[in-house]
Design a protein around this nucleic acid. Structure first.
Length: 823
RNA sequence: GCCGGGGUGGCGGAAUCGGCAGACGCAUCGGACUUAAAAUCCGAAGGGAGGAAACUCCCGUGAGGGUUCAAAUCCCUCCCCCGGCACCA
C-alpha cells in the first residue's frame, strides 16, 4: 500500500505494473476490438549492453501517442519485438567469443525487463523475435513467393573483399580502404548474389509518396534515394565490330559537345574494343581499379581524375565525327549503363578529365545574353579558358550545334532526341538511382535463403511444406576460410536432394539481409499465434495498415522503403489488400549528449535503468519528452530531471490535500485556465508536441497553487487523465485515489474543453507608436477600432510619444494590437 | 559538392497565416520554514543606462541588406552547426 503523505514513485510504479500484467490491461482483443488502432514503434536490436536511452526516447514518444489514443476511446494495440538476426549481433558474438544462440535469449530477457520498467503500454502476449524459426519460416516464405513471381533473381555484383580474412565486408567495415579487423587493403570482387527486383516498383514507390501521411523530410529523403532523372538513352556506333555503346544522359541537348566517351573499367565492352597497342596499359588500369575498395573508389574530395585511352573510337551520332573512347574510374558501372558521353564544356568531371588528358572542349550551350552581338549561334568561338565550364541554367540556348543552334536548351534537347530516334540512335528515357535490393549475406547469423541448386533442374525454391530451412548450430560461425558463407562448411546442411528430380543437389549457403526480417515484422504482430500462415487475412484487414508509426529518420531510405516494396509485392501476389504499410509515419528527433549523438563509439551512452531506479519511470518519461520537441530531439542533461520530478510531486500533494479537504467547485479563473490547458494538451498530443503539452500542464498547476493556495477536487481531478499519456503510473494512482475504477485507461474519458470558456471579456491590448510597444490598455473583447483608438490616445504613456508629430495612420488588428503612426 | 534540419537569455527550449520576444523548466538570487543544512514552499530575473523607488529610455532572436505601420517569422546575399547522400552522367 502506498502512503499518501509522501509520494513514493517506485512503489506506485511497481503496483501498477503488476496490476497491468495481472489484468491484461494492455492486451486488446484483436478480433472484437471496435476501434482498432495499431500503434507501431521500430523494434530494437537487442544488444548486449541493454536498452539504450535513445531507444527508450523513441518508444516513450510512441507510447505517449498510443496512450492518448486509448484515452480517446481507441482499441490500441502496441506490440514490440526484437530484430535479433544480423551482422550486429554476429559481430558482437565474435567479439565476446560466444555463440549468438546463447547471447540473444539473455539479451532479450534483459530488454524485456527494462521495457517493462519503463511503463510502456506493450502487449506482452504478442512479441516477435526474428531468430525464432516460427518467425523466420515466414521470412523464407516471403522469399519463396517473390522467387516464384520472378521478383527474386541471382546476378553478379561487386562487394568489398578482404583477401586476408577471405570474407565479404559491409561498407561500414571498411575503414580508410582497410579491413577493420586486420588492416589489409580491401578489394572488390564480383559475387553471384540474390536480388529482389525493387526497381520494378520505382514509379509506384515514388507516386505513392504524394498521398501517404509521412513526415515531409522522410518523404524527401526517400524520393532522393530513388533518384528519378529524366533524360535520354543514346547509342554511339563504334568503329570496330563491337556493337554501339549505349549511354544515359540527362543532357541530350549537349550531344554536339560530346568530344569523347568514357567507360567504367568493369564495362563488358572494354576488352573487345581495346586495341593491341593500348591493351597492356588498359589491363593495368582495370586491375588497379579493381584493387580499390568500393568506398575509397567513390570518394570525391580532391582526387585527381585518372584514366586510360583504349585506342578505339566511336562515332558521335550527332556530329558524325569519331571520338576517342577512354576508361576511367569516375564512371561507375552501377549507374546508368556504365558508359558516358563526355561533354567537357558543360560537366565538371568531364571538364577536369579533358584538361588532365588534353582532350577537346567544345562549348554548346550559353546564356542567350552572353552571345556576342550578331554572332552566328552555329559557329561561336567563346575563347575557351579556365572559366569555360558553365552550369546548367534556365534561359540558355544551344550553340555550335548545327541546325539546333539558337534553340532553347530544353526545346533543343527534345528536338535532338527525336532526330536521333528517327535514325534508331536513341530515345527519351527515365533513369533511377535506386538499385535492386541485394539480400544475400555471406554470413552465418540470418535466415538461410531457401533455395536448392540442382544441375539438371536449375535453382529452385524450397517447397513451402519444407519450411523453415533451419539455421544449423555451427560451432565455428566465423566468416573465414573458403570465402563463402560459413554454412558452406556444414555438409549436413548444404547437401540435399532436388525437390523436382530427387537427384543430388545442394542448398544456398548465404543467409538473407536483416532488412528482410524487418521488412514485414509489423504484419506478424497481429497474427503471432498462427503457425500455418504468416498473417491471418481477417486480422490483417482489421489492423493494417499501421495507424501510427514512429521511428528514427535513419531508416528513412532502407527499412521504410523495403517494407513498402514488400507490401506492394505481397499485394500484387494476392496475399495482402493494402497498398502501403503505414498510414502515418512520424520521425522522431535525435537525442544529443555533450553536443554529439549518443553512441557507443563516442562513449556517451546513457542507460535508462539507473535513472528509472532513482527517479521512477514517470519522471524519466516526462523528462525525455520535455527536453525538446519530440520530432526534433534535444540535449540530454540529467540536471533537468528535477523539473518533472518536482512537478509530479506537486501534483501528488495537491491531489492528496484536495482529497483531505474535500472541497468541491472550481473558481471561474481556474476553470478558464483548465479549459485552456485541455485544449492545448489535446492539440499538442495530436501533433506530437509533447514538450509544450507538458509546459501547459505545469503552467496550469502553477495557477492552481499560486500564492500557496490549496486546490479543490474539481481543480485537480483532470490531472489523473491528462497526465495518463505522460506519467501513466501516477495517473493510475491518482485516478484510484479520487475514487475512479481501475484502470484509468479503461475507464476514463479524455476531457473535453468548452470553447465558450476560452473566450475572455476583457483583454490587455498592446499599443504601439511607430511600431514600438509603448503601453498596454485594457479593452473589451471585440472593441471597435474607434473605441480602441480613443482609449489608446487617452493613455499617458502613449500620449507622451505622440507629441513628436501628427497622427498619420492607425492600424488596428481586433483583439491583437493597435499601432499609431505619427510623423 | 548535393539534399534535409537548425542558429533565440548562463543553459534546455517557447512564440512562425508578420502583430506584447524569452512561455515552461534547469541553474542562479532573495524570502519563508529550520539550531543549521538539505528537502519543501513563495517570489525575482534578457542585456545596458538613468532613478531612492514606482518607473523610464536604449539595445536585443548567427551576419549584412531589403519589403512593411509592424520582421525571430517574408525576400536577397553570406557565415556557422548537425544529420544524410556523395564522381548519379
Amino acid at each position: 500500500m502506498t502512503d499518501r503523505a509522501t509520494f513514493d514513485p517506485i512503489a506506485v510504479e511497481k503496483k501498477w505494473q503488476a496490476f497491468w500484467e495481472e489484468n491484461r490491461t494492455n492486451e486488446p482483443d484483436l478480433d472484437t476490438a471496435e476501434r482498432p488502432f495499431f500503434n507501431l514503434m521500430m523494434y530494437p536490436y537487442p544488444s548486449a549492453e541493454g536498452l539504450h536511452v535513445g531507444n527508450l526516447y523513441a518508444f516513450t514518444g510512441a507510447d505517449l501517442y498510443g496512450r492518448f489514443r486509448r484515452l480517446l476511446g481507441d482499441d490500441v494495440f502496441e506490440p514490440i519485438g526484437y530484430d535479433a538476426f544480423g551482422i550486429h549481433s554476429e559481430n558482437h558474438a565474435l567479439k565476446v567469443n560466444k555463440h549468438p544462440t546463447e547471447l540473444i535469449p539473455s539479451n532479450i530477457k534483459n530488454f524485456e525487463r527494462m521495457l517493462r520498467a519503463a511503463g510502456l503500454m506493450t502487449d506482452w502476449s504478442r512479441t516477435v523475435d526474428t531468430t525464432d524459426p516460427r518467425y523466420y519460416k515466414w521470412t523464407q516464405w516471403i522469399f519463396v513467393q517473390l522467387f516464384k513471381a520472378g521478383l527474386a533473381e541471382k546476378k553478379e555484383a561487386p562487394v568489398n573483399w578482404c583477401p586476408s580474412c577471405q570474407t565479404v565486408l559491409a561498407n561500414e567495415q571498411v575503414i580508410g580502404g582497410l579491413c577493420e579487423r586486420c588492416d589489409t587493403p580491401v578489394e572488390q570482387r564480383l559475387l553471384s548474389q540474390w536480388f529482389f527486383k525493387i526497381t520494378n516498383y520505382t514509379e509506384r514507390l515514388l507516386e505513392n509518396l504524394e498521398w501517404i501521411d509521412w513526415s515531409p523530410t522522410t518523404k524527401t529523403a526517400q524520393a532522393n534515394w530513388i533518384g528519378r532523372s529524366e533524360g535520354a538513352s543514346l547509342r554511339f556506333p563504334t568503329d570496330l565490330d563491337a556493337e554501339a555503346i549505349e549511354v544515359f544522359t540527362t543532357r541530350p541537348d549537349t550531344i554536339f559537345g560530346a568530344t569523347f566517351m568514357v567507360l567504367a573499367p568493369e564495362h563488358p565492352l572494354v576488352d573487345r574494343i581495346t586495341t593491341d597497342v593500348q591493351r597492356p596499359e588498359v589491363e593495368r588500369y582495370v586491375e588497379a581499379a579493381a584493387a580499390i575498395d568500393l568506398v575509397e573508389r567513390q570518394k570525391t574530395d580532391d582526387k585527381e581524375k585518372t584514366g586510360v585511352f583504349t585506342g578505339a573510337f566511336a562515332e558521335n551520332p550527332a556530329t558524325g565525327r569519331p571520338i576517342p573512347i577512354w576508361i576511367a574510374d569516375y564512371v561507375l558501372m552501377g549507374y546508368g549503363t556504365g558508359a558516358i558521353m563526355a561533354v567537357p564544356g558543360h560537366d565538371q568531371r568531364d571538364f577536369e578529365f579533358a584538361r588532365r588528358f588534353d582532350l577537346e572542349i567544345v562549348p554548346v550551350v550559353c546564356a542567350r545574353d552572353a552571345l556576342p552581338d550578331g554572332a552566328d549561334p552555329a559557329a561561336v568561338d567563346l575563347g575557351l579558358d579556365e572559366q569555360a565550364f558553365s552550369e546548367h541554367s534556365p534561359g540558355e540556348i544551344l550553340i555550335n550545334s548545327d541546325r539546333f543552334s539558337g534553340m532553347g536548351a530544353d526545346e533543343g534537347g527534345r528536338a535532338i532526341v527525336s532526330w536521333l530516334a528517327e535514325r534508331g540512335l536513341g530515345e527519351a528515357k527515365t533513369n533511377y538511382r535506386l538499385h535492386d535490393w541485394c539480400i544475400s549475406r555471406q554470413r552465418y547469423w540470418g535466415p538461410p535463403i531457401p533455395v536448392i541448386y540442382c544441375d539438371p533442374c536449375g535453382p529452385q525454391a524450397v517447397p513451402e511444406s519444407d519450411l523453415p530451412v533451419l539455421l544449423p548450430y555451427v560451432e565455428d560461425f566465423r566468416p573465414t576460410a573458403t570465402g563463402v558463407s560459413p554454412l558452406a562448411r556444414v555438409e549436413e546442411f548444404y547437401k540435399t536432394t532436388c525437390p523436382s528430380c530427387g537427384g543430388e543437389a545442394h542448398r544456398e549457403t548465404d543467409v538473407s539481409d536483416t532488412f528482410l526480417d524487418s521488412g514485414w515484422y509489423f504484419l506478424r504482430y497481429p497474427s503471432t499465434e498462427f503457425d500455418d500462415r504468416p498473417f491471418d487475412r481477417d486480422r490483417t484487414r482489421k489492423w493494417l495498415p499501421v495507424a501510427s508509426y514512429i521511428g528514427g529518420e535513419e531508416h528513412a531510405v532502407l527499412h521504410l522503403l523495403y517494407s513498402r516494396f514488400l507490401t506492394m509485392a505481397l499485394k500484387d501476389l494476392g496475399h495482402l489488400d493494402i497498398e502501403e504499410p503505414y498510414q502515418q509515419f512520424r520521425k522522431h528527433g535525435l537525442l544529443i549528449k555533450d553536443g554529439s549523438k549518443i553512441s557507443k563509439s563516442r562513449g556517451n551512452v546513457i542507460l535508462p535503468d539507473d535513472y528509472i531506479v532513482k527517479f521512477g519511470a514517470d519522471t524519466f518519461r516526462m523528462y525525455l519528452m520535455f527536453l525538446g520537441p519530440f520530432q526534433v530531439g534535444g540535449d540530454f542533461r540529467d540536471r533537468g530531471m528535477a523539473g518533472p520530478q518536482r512537478f509530479l510531486n506537486k501534483v501528488w500533494h495537491s491531489t492528496v490535500e484536495a482529497i483531505d479537504e474535500g472541497r468541491g467547485g472550481i473558481e471561474p479563473e481556474i476553470e478558464r485556465a483548465l479549459h485552456r490547458t485541455i485544449k492545448q494538451v489535446t492539440e499538442d498530443l495530436q501533433d506530437l508536441n509533447y514538450n509544450t503539452a507538458i509546459a501547459a500542464l505545469m503552467d496550469y498547476l502553477n495557477v492552481v497553487r499560486a500564492d500557496g493556495r490549496t486546490a479543490s477536487l474539481e481543480e485537480v481531478r483532470p490531472f489523473a487523465v491528462l497526465l495518463g499519456p505522460f506519467a501513466p503510473h501516477i495517473a493510475e494512482e491518482l485516478w484510484s485515489l479520487l475514487g475512479g475504477e481501475s484502470s484509468v485507461f479503461d475507464h476514463a474519458e479524455w476531457p473535453d474543453y468548452d470553447p465558450a470558456l476560452l473566450i475572455v471579456d476583457e483583454l490587455d491590448l498592446p499599443v504601439q507608436v511607430n511600431g514600438k510597444l509603448r503601453s498596454t490598455i485594457r479593452v473589451a473583447r471585440g472593441a471597435t477600432a474607434e473605441s480602441v483608438r480613443e482609449a489608446a490616445l487617452a493613455d499617458d504613456k502613449v500620449a507622451r510619444h505622440l507629441d513628436a508629430g501628427e497622427l498619420r495612420k492607425v492600424i488596428h488588428v481586433p483583439d491583437r494590437m493597435i499601432n499609431l503612426v505619427v510623423s
